[in-house]
Computed example of a mutant assay.
Amino acid sequence: MRSVFVFPTGEQAQTVACLDQHLPQQRSPWTLNGDLYIDIDEEATGYLFSDWDPEDVAILEAVVGHRPGWAVQIDVSGRIDGTAEVHQLSALLLEHGGVAIDDYSAHPWTLDEIHSGAVIEGLRFFDLRTYYELHRH
């Protein structure tokens, strides 16, 4: 599985309500087409940041302005590419601001960067294909 962590602005309850509205009748986790598994991870009670490089957490803190206490974790099944689905869900969750971090770079992606296809250190947001091309041996 590949993962994306989305750090929306606003309160956690607002994000939960948004997910409930768009992915009704499910929770813990929410799913999208049985290929994306979406849940809230909290640092205090869950595993958020437990396996992150401290430098990556510091980059996130600098961009956000504080250490986020929670995130939406999106796990993507290996059965699908997932790019379109991750972009769709990230756009929904970042509509009012925030950033997302994928498995391929430590860059905190804004919605504008995701929409524009910005390239940071040779990669776009959730850029599986380019990542593997760059890291093939």
Rank of each mutant, 00 (worst) to 15 (best):
R67F: 05
P68V: 06
V72Q: 10
P54W: 08
Y47I: 01
S50I: 03
I74N: 12
G46N: 06
L48T: 02
F49H: 02
V57Y: 03
V76Y: 13
G69W: 05
D41W: 08
V76Q: 13
P54L: 07
I74F: 11
I74K: 11
E43A: 01
D51L: 02
G46A: 01
D51K: 10
G65I: 11
P54N: 04
Q73D: 14
E61P: 04
S50H: 06
V76K: 09
I59L: 10
S50N: 10
E55Y: 07
E55I: 09
S50D: 08
T45P: 00
D56R: 08
A62Y: 06
A62P: 04
T45W: 00
G46K: 01
R67K: 12
G78D: 15
A71N: 14
A58N: 11
P54K: 03
G69Q: 15
S77K: 12
P68K: 05
D56C: 00
V72D: 14
G69C: 09
D41S: 07
Q73M: 15
D41G: 02
G78E: 15
A44S: 07
I59V: 08
E55R: 10
L60N: 04
V72E: 14
L60K: 05
V57E: 14
A58F: 04
W52V: 06
L48Y: 08
V64K: 13
E61W: 00
V57M: 03
L60F: 08
F49K: 01
P68E: 03
V76A: 10
D41N: 08
G46S: 01
P68G: 06
A44M: 04
E61M: 06
E42V: 00
A71I: 10
L48H: 01
P54I: 05
H66S: 15
L48P: 02
S50K: 05
I59Y: 07
V63A: 14
A44H: 00
T45C: 02
V63N: 12
E55V: 07
G78A: 15
L60D: 10
W70M: 11
A62V: 05
E55M: 04
P54E: 11
V64E: 10
D51P: 03
T45K: 00
V57N: 00
A44F: 01
P54D: 04
A71V: 10
W70S: 09
A44K: 07
G78M: 15
W52S: 07
W70A: 11
W52T: 08
W70V: 07
